[in-house]
Simulated assay, not measured.
Amino acid sequence: MEWTGARYADKPTVEVATWINAPLERVWTLVSDVSLMPAMSEELQSVTWLDGATEPAVGARFVGRSRHEAYGEWETTSHVIEYEPPRVFAWAVQDPAHPSAVWRYRFAPKDGGTELSQWMQMGPGRSGLSFAIDAMPEKEQKIVFVRMREFERNIAVTLEHIKKLAEA
């Protein structure tokens, strides 16, 4: 049986959404404080703003340090590419013109609370996953599929943490 699915070059995406029983401004404040994110993630270990920045703005940069059982430890520089309070917050990982990933939060008032979605796109720039694909090109689609399911699970966990904090 041949594995079918997305390849890395297809720039696969995943999105998870949740409804939060809290005002949009509260949810926005939590999500736009990237220093809170490591406490909500198994992979992301720390975040540090660069170039004197202390909060998001288009063009601001931050370093994220991550760890994964299969991929080891790594560090990436992210560039804020969209920042429209309180609607959208997004960043590109590594080279904003050819990112290894793009992450985006979208916020909308809904039913007296907030609809929050987190979306991510893998690629097209090289990432740690590229080394696994280089080593096993015949398994590329399976590698991409497994990593995208990991992202989906991790995003759901992050959103649940945000929901709990916002509703507390």
Rank of each mutant, 00 (worst) to 15 (best):
R61N: 02
A22M: 12
I143R: 03
V58D: 01
A9R: 08
E167S: 13
A57K: 14
M37C: 15
E150K: 06
K164W: 07
I133K: 08
S35Q: 10
K163N: 07
D95T: 00
P99C: 06
E115V: 08
A53D: 06
N154Y: 03
E43D: 12
E152M: 14
K163V: 09
D134S: 11
L30E: 07
A156P: 00
M122G: 12
V102Q: 05
H79T: 15
V157Y: 00
E152W: 00
F145L: 06
A17C: 01
E140Y: 03
R147C: 05
S127P: 13
S127N: 06
Q121T: 07
P38C: 08
M122T: 11
P124H: 13
M37V: 14
R106Q: 12
P96I: 01
M136G: 06
M122R: 13
T77K: 03
V144C: 05
K110N: 02
E75H: 04
L50Y: 10
L116C: 06
G112Y: 02
A9F: 03
W3A: 05
W19K: 01
T77Q: 05
L129I: 05
T48M: 00
D33K: 11
E160K: 10
R147D: 02
I155W: 01
E25G: 14
M136V: 14
L44A: 06
A9D: 12
A101K: 07
V47A: 12
